Amino acid sequence: MNKPAFTARFNQGDRVAMAVSYDGRAFHGWQSQRKPQVATVQEALEQALGHIANAPISVQCAGRTDAGVHASHQIVHFDSPCERDEKAWVSGGNTHLPPQVAIHWAKPVANDFHARFSATARRYRYIILNTPARSALLSGGVTWENRPLDVQAMHQAGQALLGELDFTSYRAVACQSNTPMRNVHFLKVSRCADMVVIDIEANAFLYHMVRNIAGVLIAIGAGIKPVTWAEEVLLAKDRTVAGVTAPPSGLYLVGVTYPESFQLPSSGSGPFFLAGF
């Protein structure tokens, strides 16, 4: 097995970009709540990196995920308070992390890089196990749907959501974004054996947007609603007409896009059990 080549070295004050994956079942979302009894991914990562730096570290992420939502390729950045090499941040950081969180790489970036504001797109995958019986092994890692799903109908319905549109009907009532406008670059629904995969990329997402889209597409795939319903919900600009919010267990942040000038490694497709798909 080839050992990872850790070549980068960081000086004090250097900005560090990092790729992280996590199993959201163990956490109350990404964002730190500064409460000892509430575990969050951000707090776990900051504590681990703080051990390596022997100093407090505050990280910024590309997209804050909710409780129970996973990530195979979350991007974060922080400013190094000390001189360390890449191996220290990656291998050393992982030794201080819980098993549900892993650092994959750390790279030096320009000081104007920002994990959130420099991103031009985010990509999520919503994974549905479409079998008559639930899986004990994948519990919490996918959403289970025992009704047969028509993948072609789901994909066709999703094409009405492409482009820069008003997603009022697809955001949570508690969403605090100043605008409901988002630009969806692609939305694909396909089947991989017993898995139905909703693959969606946009410039950014509203609170619960992907899960609300998944809820609508599942209803269409199950034959409860017609293909046209996804567009009807969109045009209504009313959250109450959209139906249920799909569970968080099937949702993965799988990629973040940045300008090529930052030269960050590609994300792959994720999550790991759909590698190559």
Rank of each mutant, 00 (worst) to 15 (best):
L187Q: 03
F273Q: 13
N178W: 05
A136V: 12
V189P: 04
S177I: 03
N146K: 07
A157L: 09
P108H: 09
G50I: 08
E201G: 05
A193C: 09
N11C: 08
A204P: 06
L235M: 12
A102V: 12
N146V: 00
A121E: 09
R123Q: 11
M18Y: 04
Y170T: 01
Q42N: 10
V196H: 03
Y207R: 09
H28K: 07
A214P: 02
F10N: 00
N183C: 13
A202C: 06
A230D: 07
T7P: 00
L138F: 12
V41S: 01
A172V: 03
V69R: 00
P248L: 04
L234M: 12
A62W: 02
S261D: 10
V254A: 06
A17V: 03
A39Y: 03
V233G: 00
I198V: 14
L149F: 10
Y22R: 06
N146M: 07
V90I: 14
V196R: 00
R84Q: 12
Q33C: 10
V41H: 04
D166P: 02
W30E: 00
S267G: 13
R171M: 12
A8Q: 12
V216L: 01
P180K: 13
V76F: 15
C175W: 06
I75P: 02
C61P: 03
P248V: 05
E145M: 11
P226A: 10
V59S: 13
G141W: 11
I52P: 01
W30H: 03
L187D: 03
A115T: 11
H208C: 10
R171A: 07
T228C: 10
V173N: 07
A55W: 04
G276T: 15
G24R: 02
L97W: 08
Y126E: 04
A202N: 01
R25K: 13
S32W: 04
H104V: 10
A242D: 05
G24H: 04
D14C: 03
A26L: 05
H70G: 04
A236Y: 06
P259H: 11
E46T: 10
L217C: 07
H70T: 08
I57G: 06
V197H: 06
Y22C: 01
Y170A: 01
T40H: 06
A5I: 12
G158W: 00
A121M: 04
T95Q: 13
A214C: 03
N11D: 09
K188N: 14
R147T: 15
P108T: 09
G276N: 15
M18C: 14
Q12D: 01
V233I: 11
I128F: 07
V210H: 00
V196F: 09
A160V: 07
N146L: 05
L251K: 01
V244W: 04
H96F: 15
V210F: 03
V38C: 03
G250F: 02
T131Q: 14
P98V: 11
H96Y: 15
